[in-house]
Design a protein around this nucleic acid. Sequence first.
RNA 1: UCCUCUUUAGCUCAGUUGGUUAGAGCAUCUGACUGUUAAUCAGAGGGUCCUAAGUUCGAGUCUUAGAAGAGGAGCCA
Length: 481
Amino acid sequence: MTTKTVAELLAQNVTTQDVTVKGWVRTFRANRFIALNDGSTINNIQCVVDFENFDEALLKRVTTGAAIHVTGELVESQGKGQSFEIVVKTLEILGDSDSESYPIQPKKHSFEFLRENAHLRTRTNTFSAIMRLRSSLSFAVHKYFNENGFYNMHTPIITGSDAEGAGEMFRVSTLDQKKPPLTEDGNIDHTKNFFGKDTNLTVSGQLEAETYAMSLGKVYTFGPTFRAENSNTSRHLSEFWMIEPEVAFMDLAGNMDLAEDFMKSVLSYILDNNQDDLEFLEKRLLDDEKTKPQLERSELSLIEKIKFVVDNNFKRVSYTEAIDILRNCKPNKKKKFKYIINEWGADLQSEHERFLVEKHFKCPVILFDYPANIKAFYMRLNEPDNEGRETVRAMDVLFPGIGEMAGGSQREERLDVLKEKMKALDISEEELWWYLDLRKYGSAVHSGFGLGFERLVMFVTGMGNIRDVIPYPRTPQNAEF
RNA sequence: UCCUCUUUAGCUCAGUUGGUUAGAGCAUCUGACUGUUAAUCAGAGGGUCCUAAGUUCGAGUCUUAGAAGAGGAGCCA
């Protein structure tokens, strides 16, 4: 008699002799009904105990959180909440759970409390659903790229270049922190460090991914990324997972096509494969919204929102067009924005992005061709427009409720232009010699983007705080677990 | 980093102009009941009121500093 998962048993739907299942007790009602969950599905299986025929001391140990092993018969349920249930023949306690101290009670908990108990929070319906969806999404990412001719590459996590310009970095060092070796002029002597130079945790695998795109053609990385920014928001983590495809001979239009196709593909995978968990989270959100005033409630349910993205084209808008829309929109004219849009060249704030996505277009938006001076050095410079304004082939994919889901660009492939840009921004040529080599030998048009995996999980699960879609969130002042 | 708010029982929260023994619901425990599914009914236990200093006859309540958490902003993915 092999142990089956709850998911397998519930899928069976026929009376079966001699089934065995192991899991954790969610509730034990009326000294008779055990709701058992083993993580294989959002659903519990009900195990019915004829308490008169069981040792009372044994039944006392069936507490919330205890691990148990049940054998019995799968039968049609007499109750209304489930179609099948197990009539228990034998019951074994595998691991007790002291109900006085076990933090996860059979009641609603706040997400803040569960964050402090992150090691146990996946024993709740909401977090088990989120993490199953996260796993499924991760698989869908690899599946998409694999089926579309991409190679997966692992870019280094410890990086020697600090020129990526994507934010503050975490230093990696083996030097004695109290007495670091010093050079003659009193600075820390990094030649004595483990790698013989100053090293950091990566903020992006893009530059390394470019090198592989320029030989393997279509590549992607999907790995951990670290930012030491002191940003305390519900959309930022110090450690997060980023998806970065990079493709040779692809221009910005192709990049937009890729980003849109990729997102639609992984979202529809989730719709096809994770219905139970999505329905549970959708219901949770609906209940949550009932407590909100009518105005703040969203027009679409969770599943409808995902379907909407899958079924509708992303709106592609140039920065210049976006500025025109924003300059003439009501909140700008009535000075409702904190930052009023007057001039071409202003950086868009999240209030402007939100207006475009949530009020004006009401669908995902790809903004492209940004002013050159507000974007990174490696982005492909356009010809100046007829008013002489310089833009780069950058793009941002904006999602309702999330904001910036992905950011990317066509890369500057012309050696002289790139060198000039680096000089202007004071970026060392010596340090990025290998990056410049790509432009020296067989340079070609190429493009890519970076997508924050947790932001995607937020969109799919409808969770409002990024700390609730990663197992152990790393944020400023917090590295518990 | 900036702005705002929060911190009281295991959890979620009340706590009046500063006043004597700090409350509720849920959870837990004990008992009753037994086809329940947010089980029900009765009872019980459970407190460093975030920390430190101060004002006061007296501080959960007021002041100052600090810590932690949340929301928003900036930065970004």
